[in-house]
């Protein structure tokens, strides 16, 4: 695609009238993308609501087997990462290169932290057999429907984890571009859009944490 470059900084695609026009359109696109993301997670939340309403005892029993401390730790980690992300966007808007690089780097680090904690949680559950219904081997739960809770647990946190993973990849790309000095007050669209995505991913977790870890 042809990019009109003037003075090496402001560039925008040929079918836009100005850099701001492009920025504006990109933001509309990103919000629309996030809108469909909400609907993408929706069936899991609906499935959760349906089965929780049908089998509240099973949900009560099963959610006690999740470690709320690790969940809370991850919540804090993600909230911090949202903060560093916001700082990164702000740094890009005000054109302080080192601060962009630092804040994006911290965001990536915190995201990795989140996944490490998640890894320990998962491996413990695999170890004791708290798996999706078809492979569930854990003994000591009374309610016959409790395995369904873990099906939903793995699907919901798994899909969220996948989004974190994609977020890390995108952040890594933005981070390397920031180091190259691509962003400044004239052009920071990718940082802003990644920020929107990242806050969305955090927000999903803010719902997942109480629904899965705290309902018991």
């Amino acid at each position: 695609m042809s990019e009109t470059r003037t003075e090496g900084v402001r560039h925008f695609a040929h079918h836009f009238k100005s850099a701001f026009h492009e920025f504006d359109a990109c933001k509309v696109g990103m919000w629309l993308f996030l809108l469909q993301e909400v609907l993408f997670f929706a069936p899991l939340f609906v499935g959760y609501a349906v089965y929780r309403a049908l089998y509240p005892e099973a949900w009560h029993e099963a959610s006690h087997l999740l470690d709320w401390k690790l969940g809370a730790l991850n919540t804090v980690v993600l909230i911090c990462s949202s903060f560093t992300m916001a700082m990164g966007v702000h740094a890009a808007q005000t054109g302080r290169k080192n601060k962009i690089v630092l804040n994006l780097g911290l965001t990536i680090l915190l995201a990795c932290c989140f996944l490490v904690v998640k890894y320990f949680e998962y491996s413990h559950k695999v170890h004791v057999g708290l798996l999706p219904a078809g492979m569930f081997t854990y003994e000591g739960l009374q309610h016959a429907k409790s395995p369904l809770f873990f099906s939903l647990y793995f699907m919901m946190t798994g899909l969220h984890g996948l989004h974190v993973l994609i977020g890390i990849a995108v952040l890594g790309w933005i981070w390397s571009r920031a180091r190259r000095g691509d962003f400044g007050p004239d052009y920071y669209t990718p940082v802003e859009l990644t920020g929107l995505y990242w806050h969305f991913v955090d927000l999903v977790w803010i719902y997942l944490f109480p629904l899965l870890y705290l309902v018991g």
Partner: peptide
């Protein structure tokens, strides 16, 4: 793949 059972 792994029998999550939501529809089963």
């Amino acid at each position: 793949l792994m029998g999550i059972g939501i529809f089963d």
